[in-house]
Amino acid sequence: MANSPKYTVCVLGPGGIGGLLAALLARAGHRVICLGRPETVRELRAGGIRVRSKQFGEFEARVEADTELREPADLCFITVKQTALSAAVRSLAPEATGDALLVPLLNGVEHPGALRERYRPELVAPGVIRAESTRTAPGRIVHGSAFAEIDLAGAPVVRERLTEWAGVLNDAGLRASVQEDETAMLWRKLFALAPFALMTTYYRAPIGSVRTEHRAELIELLEEVAGICRAVGVAADVDAALRFYDGFPEETMSSMQRDAAAELPLELDAIGGALLRAGEAHAVPAPLTRGLVERVGAASV
């Protein structure tokens, strides 16, 4: 909307997801500061971000870029991989973030606790994003899905601010909403993600092959993960998850599978490790999950 206020948004990790968010918000007229490595900073300063998207078309957006946050922002998206989180947050000093909302869009369920130990706990408002988006080079983003949806959750004291930010994101072209239950939001994402990530990565095959050639194992894994979800108090529907997977284009790969193919660090602990720790805490056996985690881990060494 033309008369909407304009904000300063920090994006820590302008990769596939962070770069898409940065470009959309910059295109909507907001000031965007991307934090990244020196080589990424140079490319963004020189050429901005170019997006090729099924949903938003092709466009370019100018953003600012730096290796650390040097001035206050209204909101900080944290969009690095879980494997890079500990190192990446050094460029986002607590004294620099001030009263900014911190919205991590990471896989897994344990990162909010780690971030709340570093920053003001009430300002850490986790989110989940549903989109397939890849950085092909610094500042070059390919958004392959025909959707980009974000759920936000956080402490009651920031609920009004989250609702305002959902409106900002909607105005920028995303589909955003505020959820009441942070735990349920994160675990629903993990339930949908973990079997997909573990099996496509282990079999080195896209979802089309996994859901046909290894369907019985996929169902068994979903049932195992669903048991862990229910133990932590979150409903999990195996049939709905199967329908979700069956709706994917057959060539769809998980981000963990792409990382494995590129010999990059895997978010195995954030996804599979978190499941196993929760299962142990609630005495829920998960032998198939454990076996897949161990085999994927051994193959990535």
Rank of each mutant, 00 (worst) to 15 (best):
D246Q: 02
V41E: 07
P126A: 02
R90Q: 15
R258A: 13
G279C: 05
L266R: 10
L264W: 11
I17L: 14
L44W: 14
A261S: 10
P72M: 10
A22Q: 04
G48R: 04
A281F: 06
E95C: 13
E220T: 05
G57V: 02
L106P: 04
M199A: 11
A93S: 13
V234E: 07
Y119C: 12
E60L: 10
E95H: 15
E39I: 03
L101W: 01
P265V: 00
V128N: 06
A153K: 01
R130Q: 12
E64T: 03
V128K: 05
M256D: 11
A241S: 02
E68Q: 09
T289Y: 15
A231V: 12
S209P: 06
N107P: 07
G48P: 05
D246T: 00
G139E: 03
A125M: 02
K81N: 06
F77T: 01
H282K: 14
E164S: 08
A73V: 05
L85F: 11
T79E: 06
A240L: 03
P104V: 10
A235W: 12
C76Y: 03
D99L: 11
L186G: 01
S177E: 12
R277A: 13
I49M: 10
E58G: 00
A231G: 04
R230T: 02
A26V: 07
A194I: 08
K54C: 09
V293W: 10
C76P: 01
D269Q: 07
S133Q: 03
L152R: 05
I17E: 07
A194F: 10
E164Q: 10
A2K: 15
S254E: 07
S300Q: 14
P121I: 13
A137R: 13
C10S: 02
L12E: 09
E213S: 09
V32Q: 08
E149A: 08
A197N: 09
R90V: 14
G36V: 06
Y202S: 10
A114Q: 12
Q82S: 15
P249F: 05
T163R: 15
V157R: 15
W187H: 05
M199I: 06
R243L: 12
A299V: 07
P138N: 05
S254L: 10
F196Y: 11
C229P: 00
V128C: 08
R230I: 00
G272F: 05
T136G: 05
A235F: 13
T183S: 14
S91I: 12
S177V: 02
V103F: 09
P112Y: 14
A2C: 10
V210G: 00
V103R: 05
V301L: 15
P121A: 15
L218A: 01
E220C: 04
L101V: 01
L218P: 01
E122Q: 12
R258F: 13
L169I: 09
P195G: 04
A270P: 01
D171F: 09
